[in-house]
Design a protein around this nucleic acid. Structure first.
Lengths: 273, 273
DNA sequence: TTAGTTGTTCTCCATTAGAGAACGATGTTA
DNA sequence: TAACATCGTTCTCTAATGGAGAACAACTAA
Protein backbone atom coordinates (compact mmCIF):
# COMPACT_ATOMS: atom_id res chain seq x y z
CA UNK A 1 0.00 0.00 0.00
CA UNK A 2 2.76 2.41 -0.70
CA UNK A 3 1.43 5.82 -1.47
CA UNK A 4 5.11 6.30 -2.27
CA UNK A 5 4.60 9.02 -4.84
CA UNK A 6 1.43 8.57 -6.73
CA UNK A 7 -1.90 10.28 -6.83
CA UNK A 8 -3.45 10.23 -3.39
CA UNK A 9 -7.03 10.64 -4.53
CA UNK A 10 -6.58 7.80 -6.99
CA UNK A 11 -5.11 5.67 -4.23
CA UNK A 12 -8.17 6.29 -2.10
CA UNK A 13 -10.42 5.60 -5.07
CA UNK A 14 -8.84 2.23 -5.77
CA UNK A 15 -8.84 1.30 -2.09
CA UNK A 16 -12.57 1.97 -1.98
CA UNK A 17 -13.08 -0.08 -5.11
CA UNK A 18 -11.23 -3.02 -3.62
CA UNK A 19 -13.09 -2.72 -0.37
CA UNK A 20 -16.43 -2.78 -2.14
CA UNK A 21 -15.29 -5.68 -4.28
CA UNK A 22 -14.15 -7.89 -1.46
CA UNK A 23 -17.09 -7.06 0.78
CA UNK A 24 -19.35 -9.89 -0.26
CA UNK A 25 -22.67 -8.25 0.51
CA UNK A 26 -22.14 -4.63 -0.37
CA UNK A 27 -20.60 -1.84 1.65
CA UNK A 28 -21.98 1.38 3.10
CA UNK A 29 -20.47 4.85 3.09
CA UNK A 30 -19.80 4.97 6.83
CA UNK A 31 -18.28 1.53 6.91
CA UNK A 32 -15.92 2.39 4.09
CA UNK A 33 -14.96 5.71 5.64
CA UNK A 34 -14.00 3.97 8.87
CA UNK A 35 -11.91 1.36 7.13
CA UNK A 36 -10.10 3.73 4.80
CA UNK A 37 -9.74 6.42 7.40
CA UNK A 38 -11.11 9.44 5.57
CA UNK A 39 -14.22 11.55 5.95
CA UNK A 40 -17.61 10.22 4.97
CA UNK A 41 -18.16 13.07 2.55
CA UNK A 42 -15.00 12.22 0.67
CA UNK A 43 -15.97 8.58 0.42
CA UNK A 44 -19.34 9.62 -0.88
CA UNK A 45 -17.79 11.68 -3.65
CA UNK A 46 -15.51 8.84 -4.61
CA UNK A 47 -18.39 6.39 -4.75
CA UNK A 48 -20.21 8.80 -7.01
CA UNK A 49 -17.28 8.84 -9.39
CA UNK A 50 -16.95 5.07 -9.26
CA UNK A 51 -20.65 4.75 -9.97
CA UNK A 52 -20.42 7.14 -12.93
CA UNK A 53 -17.89 4.80 -14.46
CA UNK A 54 -19.96 1.74 -13.67
CA UNK A 55 -17.42 0.17 -11.36
CA UNK A 56 -19.88 0.20 -8.49
CA UNK A 57 -23.65 0.28 -8.33
CA UNK A 58 -25.89 1.55 -5.63
CA UNK A 59 -28.84 -0.70 -5.16
CA UNK A 60 -32.05 1.31 -4.93
CA UNK A 61 -33.85 1.29 -1.62
CA UNK A 62 -31.14 -0.42 0.31
CA UNK A 63 -28.40 2.16 0.00
CA UNK A 64 -25.42 -0.15 -0.07
CA UNK A 65 -22.83 -0.07 -2.78
CA UNK A 66 -21.63 -3.12 -4.63
CA UNK A 67 -19.52 -4.00 -7.63
CA UNK A 68 -20.87 -2.85 -10.99
CA UNK A 69 -20.84 -4.22 -14.51
CA UNK A 70 -17.61 -2.60 -15.58
CA UNK A 71 -15.68 -4.49 -12.98
CA UNK A 72 -16.81 -7.63 -14.72
CA UNK A 73 -15.94 -6.21 -18.10
CA UNK A 74 -12.35 -5.67 -17.02
CA UNK A 75 -11.92 -9.38 -16.57
CA UNK A 76 -12.53 -10.11 -20.22
CA UNK A 77 -9.44 -8.05 -21.02
CA UNK A 78 -7.41 -9.15 -18.00
CA UNK A 79 -4.49 -11.51 -18.39
CA UNK A 80 -5.85 -14.99 -18.58
CA UNK A 81 -5.29 -16.03 -15.04
CA UNK A 82 -8.64 -17.67 -15.58
CA UNK A 83 -7.10 -20.87 -16.85
CA UNK A 84 -4.36 -20.84 -14.29
CA UNK A 85 -6.70 -20.47 -11.35
CA UNK A 86 -9.24 -22.91 -12.72
CA UNK A 87 -6.61 -25.58 -13.25
CA UNK A 88 -4.74 -24.95 -10.04
CA UNK A 89 -7.54 -24.72 -7.51
CA UNK A 90 -8.64 -28.37 -7.38
CA UNK A 91 -5.05 -29.55 -7.19
CA UNK A 92 -4.31 -26.99 -4.49
CA UNK A 93 -7.30 -28.19 -2.51
CA UNK A 94 -6.11 -31.77 -2.71
CA UNK A 95 -2.67 -30.76 -1.48
CA UNK A 96 -4.14 -28.83 1.44
CA UNK A 97 -6.26 -31.76 2.48
CA UNK A 98 -3.23 -34.00 2.34
CA UNK A 99 -0.73 -31.71 4.03
CA UNK A 100 -2.91 -29.48 6.17
CA UNK A 101 -0.91 -26.44 5.14
CA UNK A 102 -2.20 -23.26 3.55
CA UNK A 103 -1.69 -23.28 -0.21
CA UNK A 104 -1.34 -20.01 -2.08
CA UNK A 105 -1.40 -19.25 -5.79
CA UNK A 106 0.17 -15.99 -6.85
CA UNK A 107 0.95 -14.05 -9.96
CA UNK A 108 4.09 -11.93 -10.36
CA UNK A 109 4.26 -8.27 -11.20
CA UNK A 110 7.50 -6.31 -11.55
CA UNK A 111 6.90 -4.61 -8.20
CA UNK A 112 5.64 -7.47 -6.10
CA UNK A 113 3.91 -10.80 -6.11
CA UNK A 114 0.14 -10.92 -6.10
CA UNK A 115 -1.91 -13.40 -4.16
CA UNK A 116 -4.53 -14.58 -6.63
CA UNK A 117 -6.15 -17.48 -4.84
CA UNK A 118 -5.69 -19.25 -1.54
CA UNK A 119 -6.71 -22.42 0.21
CA UNK A 120 -6.50 -21.84 3.95
CA UNK A 121 -4.97 -24.46 6.19
CA UNK A 122 -7.28 -26.68 8.17
CA UNK A 123 -5.14 -26.56 11.29
CA UNK A 124 -6.66 -25.31 14.55
CA UNK A 125 -4.50 -22.21 14.28
CA UNK A 126 -5.12 -20.94 10.81
CA UNK A 127 -2.31 -19.39 8.84
CA UNK A 128 -3.03 -17.88 5.50
CA UNK A 129 -2.97 -14.88 3.23
CA UNK A 130 -5.87 -12.99 1.80
CA UNK A 131 -6.37 -12.93 -1.97
CA UNK A 132 -5.39 -9.54 -3.30
CA UNK A 133 -2.50 -9.21 -0.89
CA UNK A 134 0.99 -8.47 -2.06
CA UNK A 135 4.26 -10.12 -1.08
CA UNK A 136 7.70 -8.54 -1.29
CA UNK A 137 9.91 -9.92 -4.02
CA UNK A 138 12.96 -10.32 -1.82
CA UNK A 139 11.27 -11.44 1.37
CA UNK A 140 8.88 -14.19 0.35
CA UNK A 141 9.24 -17.63 -1.15
CA UNK A 142 6.90 -16.74 -3.98
CA UNK A 143 8.71 -13.51 -4.68
CA UNK A 144 12.07 -15.26 -4.83
CA UNK A 145 10.66 -17.75 -7.29
CA UNK A 146 9.99 -14.81 -9.58
CA UNK A 147 13.46 -13.41 -9.00
CA UNK A 148 15.01 -16.76 -9.82
CA UNK A 149 12.93 -17.84 -12.80
CA UNK A 150 11.52 -14.55 -14.07
CA UNK A 151 13.12 -11.86 -16.21
CA UNK A 152 16.68 -10.97 -15.19
CA UNK A 153 15.93 -7.23 -15.12
CA UNK A 154 13.68 -7.66 -12.14
CA UNK A 155 16.42 -9.26 -10.07
CA UNK A 156 18.81 -6.51 -11.07
CA UNK A 157 16.41 -3.79 -10.13
CA UNK A 158 15.54 -5.33 -6.79
CA UNK A 159 19.21 -5.78 -5.95
CA UNK A 160 19.98 -2.21 -6.97
CA UNK A 161 17.64 -0.54 -4.53
CA UNK A 162 17.92 -1.07 -0.76
CA UNK A 163 16.19 -4.20 0.51
CA UNK A 164 13.64 -3.41 3.20
CA UNK A 165 14.01 -5.45 6.38
CA UNK A 166 10.46 -6.65 6.90
CA UNK A 167 11.60 -8.83 9.78
CA UNK A 168 15.03 -9.18 11.43
CA UNK A 169 15.50 -12.33 9.37
CA UNK A 170 14.78 -10.70 6.03
CA UNK A 171 17.66 -10.88 3.59
CA UNK A 172 18.88 -7.31 3.15
CA UNK A 173 22.26 -7.95 1.55
CA UNK A 174 22.07 -7.99 -2.26
CA UNK A 175 25.00 -10.40 -2.44
CA UNK A 176 23.23 -12.85 -0.16
CA UNK A 177 20.05 -12.48 -2.17
CA UNK A 178 21.91 -13.33 -5.36
CA UNK A 179 23.39 -16.42 -3.72
CA UNK A 180 19.91 -17.41 -2.55
CA UNK A 181 18.57 -17.00 -6.06
CA UNK A 182 21.33 -19.15 -7.51
CA UNK A 183 20.50 -21.84 -4.97
CA UNK A 184 16.81 -21.59 -5.82
CA UNK A 185 17.55 -22.05 -9.50
CA UNK A 186 19.56 -25.14 -8.63
CA UNK A 187 16.95 -26.68 -6.34
CA UNK A 188 13.86 -25.67 -8.25
CA UNK A 189 12.05 -24.24 -5.26
CA UNK A 190 12.37 -21.25 -2.95
CA UNK A 191 12.15 -20.90 0.81
CA UNK A 192 11.80 -17.82 3.01
CA UNK A 193 12.00 -18.75 6.69
CA UNK A 194 10.69 -15.93 8.88
CA UNK A 195 11.56 -13.39 6.24
CA UNK A 196 8.04 -12.01 5.89
CA UNK A 197 6.73 -12.82 9.38
CA UNK A 198 8.56 -14.25 12.36
CA UNK A 199 7.53 -17.79 13.12
CA UNK A 200 6.25 -18.41 9.60
CA UNK A 201 7.98 -20.24 6.81
CA UNK A 202 7.00 -20.87 3.23
CA UNK A 203 8.24 -22.83 0.26
CA UNK A 204 7.21 -22.10 -3.30
CA UNK A 205 7.83 -23.30 -6.84
CA UNK A 206 7.09 -21.87 -10.29
CA UNK A 207 4.21 -22.55 -12.67
CA UNK A 208 4.61 -22.38 -16.44
CA UNK A 209 2.02 -22.16 -19.19
CA UNK A 210 1.89 -23.74 -22.63
CA UNK A 211 4.44 -21.32 -24.00
CA UNK A 212 6.86 -22.13 -21.23
CA UNK A 213 6.33 -18.67 -19.76
CA UNK A 214 6.34 -18.16 -16.01
CA UNK A 215 2.76 -17.30 -15.09
CA UNK A 216 2.80 -17.67 -11.34
CA UNK A 217 3.87 -19.74 -8.40
CA UNK A 218 2.34 -21.93 -5.75
CA UNK A 219 3.48 -21.71 -2.17
CA UNK A 220 2.93 -23.69 0.99
CA UNK A 221 2.65 -21.56 4.11
CA UNK A 222 3.05 -22.77 7.65
CA UNK A 223 4.69 -22.16 11.00
CA UNK A 224 8.39 -22.98 11.36
CA UNK A 225 7.20 -26.08 13.15
CA UNK A 226 5.39 -27.43 10.12
CA UNK A 227 8.00 -26.25 7.63
CA UNK A 228 11.38 -26.64 9.32
CA UNK A 229 14.41 -24.93 7.88
CA UNK A 230 15.76 -27.85 5.99
CA UNK A 231 12.26 -28.76 4.83
CA UNK A 232 11.05 -32.32 4.93
CA UNK A 233 12.04 -33.88 1.58
CA UNK A 234 8.58 -35.36 1.27
CA UNK A 235 7.05 -31.91 1.60
CA UNK A 236 9.30 -30.55 -1.11
CA UNK A 237 8.43 -33.44 -3.36
CA UNK A 238 4.75 -32.80 -2.79
CA UNK A 239 5.15 -29.12 -3.68
CA UNK A 240 7.09 -29.86 -6.84
CA UNK A 241 4.59 -32.53 -7.77
CA UNK A 242 1.81 -29.98 -7.34
CA UNK A 243 3.42 -27.28 -9.46
CA UNK A 244 4.40 -29.82 -12.08
CA UNK A 245 0.82 -31.06 -12.27
CA UNK A 246 -0.54 -27.55 -12.67
CA UNK A 247 2.07 -26.70 -15.28
CA UNK A 248 1.34 -29.78 -17.35
CA UNK A 249 -2.39 -29.07 -17.01
CA UNK A 250 -1.62 -25.70 -18.58
CA UNK A 251 0.30 -27.42 -21.37
CA UNK A 252 3.80 -26.51 -20.26
CA UNK A 253 6.64 -28.19 -22.18
CA UNK A 254 8.17 -31.13 -20.29
CA UNK A 255 11.59 -29.53 -19.85
CA UNK A 256 9.96 -26.82 -17.76
CA UNK A 257 8.28 -29.28 -15.46
CA UNK A 258 10.92 -31.88 -14.72
CA UNK A 259 13.88 -29.55 -14.46
CA UNK A 260 13.78 -29.82 -10.70
CA UNK A 261 14.76 -33.03 -9.08
CA UNK A 262 13.90 -31.43 -5.80
CA UNK A 263 14.27 -33.89 -2.99
CA UNK A 264 17.61 -35.37 -3.95
CA UNK A 265 19.42 -32.17 -3.23
CA UNK A 266 21.83 -34.10 -1.08
CA UNK A 267 24.16 -31.65 0.51
CA UNK A 268 23.78 -28.19 1.83
CA UNK A 269 20.45 -26.99 2.93
CA UNK A 270 19.95 -23.30 2.96
CA UNK A 271 21.41 -21.41 5.80
CA UNK A 272 19.16 -18.79 7.26
CA UNK A 273 20.34 -15.35 6.18
CA UNK B 1 -19.24 10.72 -18.83
CA UNK B 2 -20.37 13.36 -16.43
CA UNK B 3 -17.78 14.45 -13.95
CA UNK B 4 -20.97 15.94 -12.53
CA UNK B 5 -19.70 16.25 -8.99
CA UNK B 6 -17.27 13.56 -8.11
CA UNK B 7 -13.57 13.35 -7.52
CA UNK B 8 -11.74 14.56 -10.59
CA UNK B 9 -8.51 12.72 -9.92
CA UNK B 10 -10.42 9.50 -9.41
CA UNK B 11 -12.28 10.10 -12.63
CA UNK B 12 -8.99 10.43 -14.48
CA UNK B 13 -7.66 7.37 -12.72
CA UNK B 14 -10.57 5.20 -13.77
CA UNK B 15 -10.49 6.54 -17.31
CA UNK B 16 -6.85 5.53 -17.55
CA UNK B 17 -7.66 2.11 -16.15
CA UNK B 18 -10.36 1.58 -18.75
CA UNK B 19 -8.13 2.80 -21.52
CA UNK B 20 -5.41 0.38 -20.56
CA UNK B 21 -7.94 -2.40 -20.21
CA UNK B 22 -9.53 -1.99 -23.59
CA UNK B 23 -6.25 -1.39 -25.39
CA UNK B 24 -5.55 -4.97 -26.35
CA UNK B 25 -1.78 -4.77 -26.52
CA UNK B 26 -0.81 -2.37 -23.79
CA UNK B 27 -0.78 1.40 -23.75
CA UNK B 28 1.99 3.97 -23.36
CA UNK B 29 2.09 7.09 -21.24
CA UNK B 30 2.06 9.52 -24.16
CA UNK B 31 -0.75 7.71 -25.92
CA UNK B 32 -2.88 7.77 -22.79
CA UNK B 33 -2.13 11.43 -22.12
CA UNK B 34 -3.30 12.32 -25.62
CA UNK B 35 -6.51 10.35 -25.32
CA UNK B 36 -7.45 11.55 -21.85
CA UNK B 37 -6.28 15.08 -22.49
CA UNK B 38 -4.05 15.71 -19.49
CA UNK B 39 -0.31 16.13 -19.05
CA UNK B 40 2.05 13.20 -19.42
CA UNK B 41 3.42 13.70 -15.94
CA UNK B 42 -0.02 13.40 -14.44
CA UNK B 43 -0.71 10.22 -16.36
CA UNK B 44 2.57 8.83 -15.16
CA UNK B 45 1.69 9.46 -11.53
CA UNK B 46 -1.67 7.83 -12.00
CA UNK B 47 -0.13 4.78 -13.62
CA UNK B 48 2.22 4.51 -10.67
CA UNK B 49 -0.72 4.45 -8.29
CA UNK B 50 -2.55 1.93 -10.42
CA UNK B 51 0.54 -0.24 -10.53
CA UNK B 52 0.95 -0.04 -6.74
CA UNK B 53 -2.50 -1.51 -6.41
CA UNK B 54 -1.81 -4.14 -9.03
CA UNK B 55 -4.47 -2.95 -11.45
CA UNK B 56 -1.89 -2.38 -14.15
CA UNK B 57 1.54 -3.82 -14.79
CA UNK B 58 4.44 -2.35 -16.63
CA UNK B 59 6.19 -4.98 -18.63
CA UNK B 60 9.96 -4.79 -18.17
CA UNK B 61 11.99 -3.73 -21.16
CA UNK B 62 9.08 -2.74 -23.30
CA UNK B 63 7.68 0.10 -21.26
CA UNK B 64 4.03 -0.34 -22.05
CA UNK B 65 1.38 -0.70 -19.41
CA UNK B 66 -1.22 -3.42 -19.39
CA UNK B 67 -3.87 -4.81 -17.11
CA UNK B 68 -2.64 -6.40 -13.89
CA UNK B 69 -3.76 -9.32 -11.76
CA UNK B 70 -6.03 -7.34 -9.49
CA UNK B 71 -8.26 -6.45 -12.40
CA UNK B 72 -8.84 -10.15 -12.81
CA UNK B 73 -9.44 -10.57 -9.11
CA UNK B 74 -12.18 -7.96 -9.20
CA UNK B 75 -14.06 -10.00 -11.71
CA UNK B 76 -14.33 -12.95 -9.40
CA UNK B 77 -16.36 -10.79 -7.06
CA UNK B 78 -18.31 -9.03 -9.78
CA UNK B 79 -21.97 -9.73 -10.38
CA UNK B 80 -22.63 -12.81 -12.42
CA UNK B 81 -22.98 -11.18 -15.79
CA UNK B 82 -20.86 -14.08 -16.85
CA UNK B 83 -23.83 -16.34 -17.23
CA UNK B 84 -25.86 -13.69 -18.93
CA UNK B 85 -23.21 -12.90 -21.50
CA UNK B 86 -22.26 -16.52 -22.02
CA UNK B 87 -25.86 -17.53 -22.57
CA UNK B 88 -26.76 -14.55 -24.69
CA UNK B 89 -23.82 -14.39 -27.06
CA UNK B 90 -24.56 -17.37 -29.29
CA UNK B 91 -28.19 -16.39 -29.60
CA UNK B 92 -27.20 -12.81 -30.35
CA UNK B 93 -24.83 -14.01 -33.03
CA UNK B 94 -27.55 -16.05 -34.66
CA UNK B 95 -29.87 -13.05 -34.67
CA UNK B 96 -27.20 -10.85 -36.23
CA UNK B 97 -26.53 -13.36 -38.98
CA UNK B 98 -30.21 -13.59 -39.68
CA UNK B 99 -31.07 -9.89 -39.53
CA UNK B 100 -27.77 -8.23 -40.37
CA UNK B 101 -28.29 -5.70 -37.61
CA UNK B 102 -25.95 -4.92 -34.73
CA UNK B 103 -27.04 -6.69 -31.56
CA UNK B 104 -26.16 -5.23 -28.17
CA UNK B 105 -26.40 -6.70 -24.69
CA UNK B 106 -26.42 -4.24 -21.83
CA UNK B 107 -26.78 -4.15 -18.11
CA UNK B 108 -28.60 -1.39 -16.22
CA UNK B 109 -27.25 0.79 -13.46
CA UNK B 110 -29.27 3.49 -11.71
CA UNK B 111 -27.41 6.20 -13.64
CA UNK B 112 -27.18 4.72 -17.09
CA UNK B 113 -27.18 1.57 -19.15
CA UNK B 114 -23.96 -0.30 -19.70
CA UNK B 115 -22.99 -2.02 -22.91
CA UNK B 116 -21.68 -5.41 -21.85
CA UNK B 117 -21.28 -7.26 -25.12
CA UNK B 118 -21.93 -6.49 -28.76
CA UNK B 119 -22.20 -8.26 -32.06
CA UNK B 120 -21.48 -5.77 -34.83
CA UNK B 121 -23.64 -5.67 -37.90
CA UNK B 122 -22.34 -7.31 -41.05
CA UNK B 123 -23.59 -4.56 -43.32
CA UNK B 124 -21.14 -2.69 -45.54
CA UNK B 125 -21.65 0.38 -43.39
CA UNK B 126 -21.12 -0.85 -39.89
CA UNK B 127 -23.17 0.52 -37.04
CA UNK B 128 -22.41 -0.55 -33.53
CA UNK B 129 -21.51 0.38 -29.99
CA UNK B 130 -18.34 -0.42 -28.14
CA UNK B 131 -18.53 -2.63 -25.03
CA UNK B 132 -18.04 -0.49 -21.96
CA UNK B 133 -19.98 2.42 -23.39
CA UNK B 134 -22.89 4.00 -21.59
CA UNK B 135 -26.30 4.89 -22.90
CA UNK B 136 -28.61 7.54 -21.47
CA UNK B 137 -31.63 6.16 -19.66
CA UNK B 138 -34.09 8.51 -21.34
CA UNK B 139 -32.57 8.60 -24.81
CA UNK B 140 -31.94 4.99 -25.75
CA UNK B 141 -34.09 1.96 -26.33
CA UNK B 142 -32.13 -0.04 -23.80
CA UNK B 143 -32.35 2.74 -21.24
CA UNK B 144 -36.11 3.03 -21.64
CA UNK B 145 -36.45 -0.70 -21.13
CA UNK B 146 -34.90 -0.18 -17.72
CA UNK B 147 -37.17 2.77 -17.00
CA UNK B 148 -40.20 0.71 -17.95
CA UNK B 149 -39.42 -2.60 -16.30
CA UNK B 150 -36.88 -1.65 -13.63
CA UNK B 151 -37.42 -0.13 -10.20
CA UNK B 152 -39.92 2.71 -10.13
CA UNK B 153 -37.54 5.03 -8.25
CA UNK B 154 -35.30 5.23 -11.27
CA UNK B 155 -38.06 6.51 -13.51
CA UNK B 156 -39.07 9.05 -10.87
CA UNK B 157 -35.54 10.32 -10.47
CA UNK B 158 -34.93 10.61 -14.19
CA UNK B 159 -38.17 12.50 -14.69
CA UNK B 160 -37.39 14.80 -11.78
CA UNK B 161 -34.16 16.18 -13.18
CA UNK B 162 -33.98 17.93 -16.57
CA UNK B 163 -33.67 15.59 -19.53
CA UNK B 164 -30.61 16.33 -21.65
CA UNK B 165 -31.32 16.79 -25.36
CA UNK B 166 -28.70 14.52 -26.90
CA UNK B 167 -30.22 15.06 -30.33
CA UNK B 168 -33.08 17.32 -31.48
CA UNK B 169 -35.28 14.22 -31.42
CA UNK B 170 -34.48 13.28 -27.82
CA UNK B 171 -37.50 13.22 -25.54
CA UNK B 172 -36.99 16.08 -23.09
CA UNK B 173 -40.49 16.40 -21.72
CA UNK B 174 -41.02 14.25 -18.59
CA UNK B 175 -44.69 13.85 -19.41
CA UNK B 176 -43.89 12.52 -22.86
CA UNK B 177 -41.30 10.18 -21.36
CA UNK B 178 -43.86 8.78 -18.95
CA UNK B 179 -46.29 8.19 -21.82
CA UNK B 180 -43.50 6.45 -23.74
CA UNK B 181 -42.77 4.26 -20.76
CA UNK B 182 -46.41 3.30 -20.41
CA UNK B 183 -46.48 2.34 -24.07
CA UNK B 184 -43.29 0.30 -23.67
CA UNK B 185 -44.82 -1.59 -20.76
CA UNK B 186 -47.82 -2.31 -22.93
CA UNK B 187 -45.87 -3.47 -25.96
CA UNK B 188 -43.04 -5.25 -24.18
CA UNK B 189 -40.30 -3.51 -26.12
CA UNK B 190 -38.79 -0.04 -26.40
CA UNK B 191 -37.82 2.09 -29.36
CA UNK B 192 -35.70 5.24 -29.57
CA UNK B 193 -35.67 6.63 -33.11
CA UNK B 194 -32.86 9.16 -33.57
CA UNK B 195 -32.89 9.95 -29.87
CA UNK B 196 -29.24 9.07 -29.29
CA UNK B 197 -27.89 9.73 -32.79
CA UNK B 198 -29.64 11.18 -35.80
CA UNK B 199 -30.25 8.60 -38.49
CA UNK B 200 -30.02 5.70 -36.06
CA UNK B 201 -32.86 3.77 -34.52
CA UNK B 202 -32.92 0.95 -32.00
CA UNK B 203 -35.41 -1.41 -30.44
CA UNK B 204 -34.78 -3.28 -27.21
CA UNK B 205 -36.47 -5.69 -24.84
CA UNK B 206 -35.75 -6.87 -21.28
CA UNK B 207 -33.95 -9.99 -20.04
CA UNK B 208 -34.84 -11.68 -16.75
CA UNK B 209 -32.90 -14.20 -14.70
CA UNK B 210 -34.06 -17.24 -12.73
CA UNK B 211 -35.43 -15.05 -9.93
CA UNK B 212 -37.45 -13.01 -12.34
CA UNK B 213 -35.17 -10.03 -11.77
CA UNK B 214 -34.35 -7.68 -14.61
CA UNK B 215 -30.67 -8.26 -15.39
CA UNK B 216 -30.26 -6.52 -18.71
CA UNK B 217 -31.64 -5.92 -22.13
CA UNK B 218 -30.86 -6.77 -25.70
CA UNK B 219 -31.16 -4.19 -28.43
CA UNK B 220 -31.06 -4.15 -32.19
CA UNK B 221 -29.29 -1.14 -33.64
CA UNK B 222 -29.56 0.10 -37.20
CA UNK B 223 -30.15 3.05 -39.44
CA UNK B 224 -33.66 4.44 -39.74
CA UNK B 225 -33.77 2.65 -43.06
CA UNK B 226 -33.33 -0.76 -41.48
CA UNK B 227 -35.48 -0.03 -38.45
CA UNK B 228 -38.34 2.20 -39.65
CA UNK B 229 -40.43 4.05 -37.14
CA UNK B 230 -43.28 1.66 -36.99
CA UNK B 231 -40.86 -1.26 -36.93
CA UNK B 232 -41.46 -4.30 -39.08
CA UNK B 233 -43.61 -6.70 -37.01
CA UNK B 234 -41.31 -9.54 -38.01
CA UNK B 235 -38.34 -7.66 -36.62
CA UNK B 236 -40.13 -7.07 -33.32
CA UNK B 237 -41.11 -10.71 -33.14
CA UNK B 238 -37.50 -11.69 -33.72
CA UNK B 239 -36.28 -9.38 -30.94
CA UNK B 240 -38.84 -10.67 -28.46
CA UNK B 241 -38.04 -14.21 -29.46
CA UNK B 242 -34.38 -13.51 -28.79
CA UNK B 243 -34.89 -11.98 -25.37
CA UNK B 244 -37.32 -14.70 -24.43
CA UNK B 245 -34.80 -17.35 -25.42
CA UNK B 246 -32.05 -15.72 -23.38
CA UNK B 247 -34.37 -15.29 -20.40
CA UNK B 248 -35.44 -18.91 -20.45
CA UNK B 249 -31.80 -19.94 -20.82
CA UNK B 250 -31.20 -18.06 -17.60
CA UNK B 251 -34.09 -19.87 -15.96
CA UNK B 252 -36.57 -17.03 -15.93
CA UNK B 253 -40.12 -17.95 -14.86
CA UNK B 254 -42.48 -18.30 -17.84
CA UNK B 255 -44.67 -15.31 -16.93
CA UNK B 256 -41.65 -13.09 -17.36
CA UNK B 257 -40.92 -14.37 -20.80
CA UNK B 258 -44.27 -14.62 -22.49
CA UNK B 259 -45.83 -11.55 -20.91
CA UNK B 260 -45.20 -9.65 -24.09
CA UNK B 261 -46.98 -10.83 -27.15
CA UNK B 262 -45.38 -7.91 -28.83
CA UNK B 263 -47.28 -6.47 -31.72
CA UNK B 264 -50.71 -7.62 -30.70
CA UNK B 265 -50.46 -5.83 -27.42
CA UNK B 266 -54.10 -5.82 -26.53
CA UNK B 267 -54.33 -6.11 -22.78
CA UNK B 268 -52.11 -5.04 -19.98
CA UNK B 269 -48.70 -6.62 -19.69
CA UNK B 270 -46.62 -5.99 -16.61
CA UNK B 271 -47.64 -3.52 -13.99
CA UNK B 272 -45.20 -0.87 -12.78
CA UNK B 273 -43.24 -1.90 -9.70
C1' DT C 1 25.54 12.35 -36.38
C1' DT C 2 20.76 14.61 -36.04
C1' DA C 3 16.07 14.62 -35.18
C1' DG C 4 12.39 12.36 -33.60
C1' DT C 5 10.45 9.41 -30.39
C1' DT C 6 9.66 7.39 -25.77
C1' DG C 7 9.08 7.13 -20.37
C1' DT C 8 10.58 9.67 -16.30
C1' DT C 9 11.79 13.50 -13.00
C1' DC C 10 11.50 17.97 -11.57
C1' DT C 11 9.16 22.55 -9.79
C1' DC C 12 5.30 25.54 -9.00
C1' DC C 13 0.68 27.35 -8.35
C1' DA C 14 -4.43 27.09 -9.04
C1' DT C 15 -7.38 23.56 -8.20
C1' DT C 16 -9.75 20.55 -5.39
C1' DA C 17 -9.97 16.67 -2.19
C1' DG C 18 -11.07 15.97 2.30
C1' DA C 19 -12.57 17.55 7.23
C1' DG C 20 -16.42 18.56 9.74
C1' DA C 21 -20.87 20.01 10.79
C1' DA C 22 -25.70 19.81 9.63
C1' DC C 23 -29.62 17.67 7.27
C1' DG C 24 -33.45 14.48 6.43
C1' DA C 25 -34.64 9.45 6.35
C1' DT C 26 -34.80 5.24 8.41
C1' DG C 27 -34.61 1.93 12.19
C1' DT C 28 -34.40 0.78 16.95
C1' DT C 29 -35.42 1.08 21.79
C1' DA C 30 -38.03 2.25 25.76
C1' DT D 1 -45.42 7.32 20.55
C1' DA D 2 -41.39 9.60 21.61
C1' DA D 3 -36.47 9.64 22.12
C1' DC D 4 -32.50 7.99 20.34
C1' DA D 5 -29.11 6.18 17.15
C1' DT D 6 -27.30 5.70 12.62
C1' DC D 7 -27.68 5.80 7.95
C1' DG D 8 -26.58 8.37 3.29
C1' DT D 9 -26.38 12.91 1.59
C1' DT D 10 -25.40 18.02 1.22
C1' DC D 11 -23.01 21.96 2.42
C1' DT D 12 -18.84 25.21 3.31
C1' DC D 13 -14.02 26.14 3.70
C1' DT D 14 -8.99 25.67 3.33
C1' DA D 15 -4.70 23.21 3.31
C1' DA D 16 -2.93 19.78 0.54
C1' DT D 17 -2.08 18.19 -3.94
C1' DG D 18 -2.95 17.15 -8.81
C1' DG D 19 -1.75 18.65 -13.18
C1' DA D 20 0.93 21.85 -16.48
C1' DG D 21 5.12 22.37 -18.52
C1' DA D 22 9.86 22.16 -19.14
C1' DA D 23 13.98 19.36 -18.90
C1' DC D 24 15.83 14.74 -18.53
C1' DA D 25 17.69 10.17 -20.22
C1' DA D 26 17.17 6.42 -23.18
C1' DC D 27 15.98 4.67 -27.73
C1' DT D 28 14.95 4.35 -32.73
C1' DA D 29 15.04 5.92 -37.47
C1' DA D 30 16.88 8.37 -41.08
Amino acid sequence: MGAADGVKAADVCLSILELVAFQAEGAGVTQIADRIGIAKSAVFKHLQTLADHGFVTQEPGNARYRLGPKAWLLARHAPDLNDVAANAMPLMLAARNELGLAVVLSSPTPQSVFVVATVPSNQPIEIGIRPGGQLALHASAQGKVYLAFGPAEVLERVCAEPLAAITPRTVTDPGQLRRDVAEIRRLGYAMAPEESLLGINAIAAPIYDYRGALVGSIGLIGSVQHIPVPPDPALIARLLGLTKAVSTALGAPPDKTNGCRGVVASGQSRKPT
